[in-house]
Simulated scan of single mutants.
Amino acid sequence: MAAISSLSFSALGQASERKVPVSATRSFVSNFDGFRFRTNYGSDSFVVQTSNSSSRMVIQCLSSVAGGVPTVSVPTVSDTKLNFLKAYKRPIPSIYNNVLQELIVQQHLMRYKRTYQYDAVFALGFVTVYDQLMEGYPDDEDREAIFQAYIKALKEDPEQYRNDAQKLEEWARAQNATSIIEFPSREGEIEGILKDISERAGGKGSFSYSRFFAIGLFRLLELANATEPTVLEKLCVSLNINKRSVDRDLDVYRNLLSKLVQAKELLKEYVDREKKKMEERVQSQKANEVVAKCLGEFQNGGAS
């Protein structure tokens, strides 16, 4: 991966100057025919199967153990998506909805993975991605309502996500390149959270690494102004996390968000053009009405 400092979430919020074809509005979400997500334990797996036709798309999520005997009954991907649609019934512009639908499928698989256990770094990662994806959404209240519906559809607490993300951000702003990797030798609420993650990732409990965790990890470094690759490497060692996986996943999301910025810029240009056309039509109509009124007054005056 290139220098880690090249990935900045604040920079991704700015529009790209490079012009891209309209197809870019669809390229930032992956089109998949099938996706298999296996846990660290060979006896447990989730399978997503999709079949496309002109009328519908069917998605199934199955949980099984060796021998094909179901263990824990978990909601299907369709159940989670339906919960989201029930919780938020207003239409969502396609450029946002396409990404949300892709993310909720991925996060459903993470959420119901056997080794999954919620943690604050994961929450920070998701909140960071969500806020970047939804930046510029037409209505702030709707943006937060969508967030609430999304997390509740996964049977988790949106307030916990927001609160934990805020705590981590405040803590990270008070750190630097040295202090942030010294959490194992220090006491505190956030230090305790990171120690717990380190122990679980080291094999002393359930831990499920994900891209959202990688994003949350880098967000901590970004806020601490400690984005040098060596700092990330040391932090990964302290947390018992594979840095190669983190590098790969940061690249994936950097590309995703960059494409989203380009697509949103195209959408903005389209909306601005349509708005200008509408204003021109309104002005033209008003001018015609004024002319018609003047002609009417002239004709009436001539008749008298």
Score class of each variant (00 low, 15 high):
residue 5 S to I: 02
residue 5 S to D: 09
residue 12 L to E: 04
residue 15 A to C: 03
residue 17 E to K: 11
residue 19 K to N: 09
residue 23 S to T: 09
residue 27 S to G: 02
residue 27 S to N: 09
residue 29 V to H: 03
residue 31 N to G: 08
residue 34 G to Q: 13
residue 38 R to S: 11
residue 48 V to I: 09
residue 50 T to Q: 15
residue 53 S to T: 14
residue 54 S to L: 12
residue 54 S to A: 14
residue 56 R to E: 15
residue 56 R to V: 08
residue 57 M to Y: 09
residue 64 S to V: 12
residue 67 G to E: 07
residue 73 S to E: 12
residue 73 S to V: 11
residue 78 S to Y: 11
residue 79 D to T: 10
residue 79 D to K: 06
residue 80 T to H: 01
residue 91 P to R: 02
residue 95 I to M: 01
residue 95 I to C: 01
residue 99 V to L: 12
residue 99 V to R: 12
residue 100 L to R: 00
residue 117 Q to E: 13
residue 119 D to C: 07
residue 119 D to I: 01
residue 120 A to K: 10
residue 121 V to P: 07
residue 128 T to L: 01
residue 140 D to A: 13
residue 143 R to D: 03
residue 144 E to V: 12
residue 160 Q to S: 12
residue 160 Q to D: 08
residue 163 N to K: 15
residue 168 L to Y: 02
residue 168 L to F: 04
residue 170 E to Q: 14
residue 178 T to M: 10
residue 179 S to C: 04
residue 182 E to T: 13
residue 186 R to M: 06
residue 187 E to A: 12
residue 192 G to Y: 04
residue 192 G to H: 04
residue 199 E to D: 11
residue 200 R to G: 02
residue 200 R to T: 11
residue 202 G to F: 05
residue 204 K to M: 06
residue 210 S to L: 00
residue 210 S to P: 02
residue 210 S to R: 02
residue 214 A to M: 01
residue 219 R to F: 06
residue 220 L to A: 04
residue 223 L to C: 06
residue 224 A to T: 00
residue 225 N to K: 14
residue 226 A to S: 07
residue 227 T to R: 07
residue 239 L to G: 03
residue 242 N to D: 15
residue 244 R to D: 14
residue 245 S to M: 09
residue 245 S to Y: 05
residue 247 D to C: 04
residue 253 Y to D: 04
residue 257 L to P: 03
residue 257 L to N: 01
residue 260 L to I: 10
residue 260 L to C: 07
residue 271 V to I: 10
residue 271 V to W: 06
residue 274 E to G: 00
residue 278 M to F: 05
residue 278 M to E: 12
residue 285 Q to M: 14
residue 287 A to N: 10
residue 287 A to K: 11
residue 288 N to M: 14
residue 295 L to F: 12
residue 298 F to Y: 08
residue 302 G to P: 01
residue 303 A to Y: 05
residue 304 S to N: 13
